[in-house]
Amino acid sequence: MAQVVVVTSGKGGVGKTTSSAAFATGLAQRGKKTVVIDFDVGLRNLDLIMGVERRVVFDIVNVISGEARLNQALIRDKRVDTLSILPASQTRDKDALTREGVQKIIDELSKDFDYILCDSPAGIEKGALLALYFADQAIVVTNPEVSSVRDSDRILGVLQSRSKRSEEKRDPVKEHLLVTRFDPARVERGEMLKLEDIREILSIPLLGVIPESESVLRASNTGTPVIMDGESNAGQAYADAVARFLGEEKPHRFIETEKKGLLKRLFGGRAA
């Protein structure tokens, strides 16, 4: 039986799709059969971040409406063979998604995959609600910024009241906090919320901290999930988070400022 994991945040632009792509790739790299579904119908972008935009033939709406079979719509990743992508539709609107349709897709995928990642759209409308409805676990992506933390709190409330697990009064959805775009130097200068503050306010277990990093833009430029950039801090931080997700103990890295000597101040670069 597959685990359904929603990547959500409430707020837009905090790194849901970047994190979905990185996580799905990371799980697949560790041999887990993983599929990542784009729920942002009308504004699909996961295909670009995964670098498969030229190969999209059918999408989730085609499958729900019976125009294509699920295995025809799944795009198999050419870099990691245990990874598949189910794209969102670019032309239809969100009403094309139905709970019954999504249920059927998840049931069918459950037979073949270990993990089903649902990349949620921003907001708390239909697409976001459907993305989280079937979740067993949730990765809540949060920036160290007031509006993002507030929206994360809001989405946690939605997870606790409007998911299938909550409706059926089963064990609640397992929640994980993933802080992204974290900049220890700004925290040190008192310009950014501290990690402890975010943890205290949201009070859910911390899965990982992804540092602000130039490698994220480079990765999206080329359509390569940033976790494949093993030299970058962000790539390594995602790999750590995936390891923790699978139960390994890993100390958090990149959460404190690098102590720079005089030479490095003069000659050293920026965050990799």
Binding site: L48, S220, N221, T222, L266, F267, G269
Partner: peptide, 23 residues
Amino acid sequence: MSWLDFFRGQRKEPPTATAAKER
């Protein structure tokens, strides 16, 4: 990238913005 990279010669990888535009 610091000014020292100028002397280190070629960058390790080509810039990625062109790839973004083409895609």
